[in-house]
Computed example of a mutant assay.
Amino acid sequence: MLQIKVLAVGKIKEKYLKEGLKEYAKRLGAYIRLEMIEVEDEPCPERASAADEARVKQKEAEKVLKLISPQDYVVLLDLLGKELSSPELAVLFDEKGLSGQSRITFVIGGSLGTADEIRKRADYRWSFSKLTFPHQMIRLILLEQIYRACKISKGEPYHK
């Protein structure tokens, strides 16, 4: 069974997002083993300098990288990454499973983005869209896409 870990910097505060995440985690239980880990974000001054922002991203990266195993296939959610369709994500899951790489870790950086160390560790950099999404909402969108890909992979109907 595919093991998927979602590492995200920052806490979810909105109740509706927490409920949505809980619902998709429940649905995904039939397809994968899911682990969701929140990494505490670093405080950043309101008018942060470039050096302050780099320091924040570096500290957040250190926390994230400690939670990634050497055998994990790491997918970084990155604005500059490659876009994937839902069927292409399903193919990625199938390919990883068939090649014996059943541990996939998705990384969602902090509100300032991610440090270069995480980009270097990533096996794949995935952009959802050229649109900007609220930082906390992206976790829910990610879980929905993972669920959709699992259904596609199993040949089950899904809403197009």
Results as ranks from 00 to 15, higher is better:
E35I: 07
K15G: 09
A50P: 11
K15A: 14
L21G: 06
L17G: 07
A61L: 08
G109M: 06
R103I: 02
R27E: 09
E95R: 15
S69M: 10
Y31F: 15
I68T: 02
A30N: 14
Y31P: 02
F106R: 01
K59Y: 06
P70F: 11
I108V: 15
L21P: 05
I108Y: 10
D72N: 11
E40W: 07
S111T: 12
K15R: 14
D41C: 04
P87T: 02
S49M: 03
A115M: 04
V107Y: 06
K26H: 14
V56D: 09
E53I: 15
K82A: 01
D41S: 08
D116P: 05
E88H: 00
K18N: 08
E35F: 03
A48I: 09
F93M: 11
E38N: 00
I32G: 03
V75M: 06
E35K: 14
K59G: 04
K63N: 12
R103T: 04
A51C: 05
V107A: 03
P43H: 08
K96C: 03
G109C: 05
L17W: 13
S111I: 05
S86L: 03
K82C: 01
K66V: 00
D41W: 03
I37A: 06
P45M: 09
V107P: 01
E62Q: 14
E23F: 12
K26Q: 13
